[in-house]
Amino acid sequence: MRGVRKLAWVEVKLFIREPLALVFAFAFPFFMLFILAGVFGNDIDSTDPESVEVWRGVGPSDYYVSTYVGLVMASAGLITLPLRLAGYREAGVLRRYRAAGVSVPVVLGAQVLVCIGMAVVAATGIVVTSTLLYGTVLPANWALVLLAMGAGLLTFASIGVFLGAVLPTARAVQGAGLALFFVMMMISGSGPPRDVLTDSMRLVSDMMPLTHLNLLLQDAWLGFGWAMDQALITLAFAVGAALLAVRFFRWE
């Protein structure tokens, strides 16, 4: 335990010394916030049933704010975490840690802790920005939103460890991780609303963990309750990715 804490603290310091390499991932949710708030604003024509349907009865910016929180978690899990792990493996840092007797759970635990911390800070930043600049709503049900966030962090931490385990190099992460991230950013609810996607897009979208996490977050945020199906699917992704990560983790 002393090892994890120390390693996590070291990782935090390393992060503070060289933040740009890792925070660039968190810029995307902010871009989406600024662009989509500029395009759609936060008003809908409430006499147009189609529009009401697409935006789930709320203003577009209110619709989106929770999905950016999901997107932040995806950034951490699809880019930041695997980039770090693969980079360490490639450089021989993991090898060195292993020889010193650092166990897999300690290495991964420290990385996950730091990434979760960064994601929480970035998510807070997104919500504060959106609230102050665009006057979007705060969570209707804080408890459910926090619960959904916990599920999201768990899921994307597992996915991040899995990607970091199977993608051999930082370059591979920059390819595969970023590709996955952009697909999710566009069709998992943080981009065009689900209702306007084509059928085939929606099919792909349904296979993405972020789609379900975003629905879970959005329902909780807007006061539509707890989306149990989405919660279970999200957790299934978490468990699946964690098992695969343990199975495929390599030190070198």
Partner: peptide, 24 residues
Amino acid sequence: SQLQESALPDRLRVWEALDLFAAI
């Protein structure tokens, strides 16, 4: 173990590496 090939994180300082490995 002093390995023929290995590395540490670029920005890790000498004392931090020693302190970390001692703690492990």
